[in-house]
């Protein structure tokens, strides 16, 4: 067996199989698991309350992906067409947050956006508002957290696509009578789609399953599917039910990935966009 296959087996397939097998089992009262075959967990997972959380999670993930894209594209565009030196500086700034732990970064956002945070203090100092704005423990705070966390994963793949565009293609388009806007729509945008699609996958899927950001910044009314799973595993000690919700999520994500590969084979796109 080739080593890569072995790694895949140990780190991905076996854990996955354990989760799937738990999802068909029953939780014992002491928190243990009895391995019998039952569909009870799935029946429960597809009940109205859990399904609505699942749908809401999709909504949050879609909106997050969209907002992240809107912020990331201009950044990536600027980066791709600026000087080599500026590219390096911006790249460094984008990678910089990775040097700090994720949780610490989320705490910083909490502090920054909090009622006594820098932003609220600045707003009040400038007289823009009398009382502090509520910017965390609500949907707004959650989106700020998500976008902040996801931005590099959207910027970098789009940048790498844009950076590979041969400038003479843009010149050719202008030369043939297309305006700057037409050139963007007909050349720049289509050639950045591989990066864009990669960015969407990198942002959408982790957001869908994330539970830390809604917990930290989303307040009590913003629960995502990840929070439900965590609660089943940690608080309710009902691993089989947590596994069933996880499996539903995994299956949905798998469907997305299969569609992505079907319509956008990453190995094929390398050939057609190799210039």
């Amino acid at each position: 067996m080739a080593p890569p296959v072995f790694w895949l087996l140990v780190f991905f397939i076996v854990p996955l199989l354990i989760v799937v097998s738990y999802s068909f089992s029953i939780a014992k009262t002491d928190g243990g698991i009895s391995l019998v075959f039952t569909l009870k967990n799935y029946g429960q997972a597809l009940e109205g309350m859990y399904l609505s959380v699942l749908f809401k999670s999709f909504g949050y993930a879609i909106v997050t992906t969209l907002l992240t894209f809107l912020l990331a594209y201009p950044m990536a565009y600027y980066m791709a067409f600026t000087t080599q030196r500026q590219k390096m500086i911006i790249m460094f700034l984008i990678i910089l947050p990775f040097w700090t732990n994720f949780l610490i970064r989320m705490f910083s956002i909490m502090i920054l956006l909090g009622e006594n945070g820098l932003i609220n203090k600045a707003f009040m100092f400038l007289g823009l508002t009398d009382s502090p704005l509520r910017m965390i423990n609500n949907t707004f705070g959650m989106y700020v957290g998500f976008i902040y966390w996801n931005l590099p994963f959207m910027v970098l793949p789009i940048f790498s696509s844009l950076d590979r565009i041969d400038v003479s293609l843009l010149e050719a388009s202008l030369d043939l009578g297309a305006s700057q806007r037409q050139t963007f729509m007909k050349v720049t945008l289509p050639y950045s789609i591989p990066g864009l699609v990669a960015g969407i996958v990198f942002v959408f899927i982790p957001t869908l399953g994330n539970f830390v950001i809604p917990e930290f910044l989303g307040g009590t009314q913003n629960t995502m599917i990840g929070n439900l799973i965590t609660a089943q595993y940690l608080q309710a000690q009902n691993w089989p039910f947590g596994s069933a919700i996880s499996t539903v999520l995994i299956v949905i994500v798998m469907i997305f990935i299969v569609l992505y590969i079907r319509f956008y084979d990453p190995t094929k796109s390398k050939n057609t966009l190799n210039f």
Binding site: D166, L169, E171, A172, L174, A178, S179, Q180, Y191, F275
Partner: peptide, 20 residues
């Protein structure tokens, strides 16, 4: 004038054909 407003066309050294 902007390049798209000139009655001039270019054959580029690397041809710059749109690959798609």
């Amino acid at each position: 004038d902007a390049p798209n407003n000139r009655d001039v066309n270019t054959v580029f050294q690397n041809y710059a054909l749109f690959p798609n």
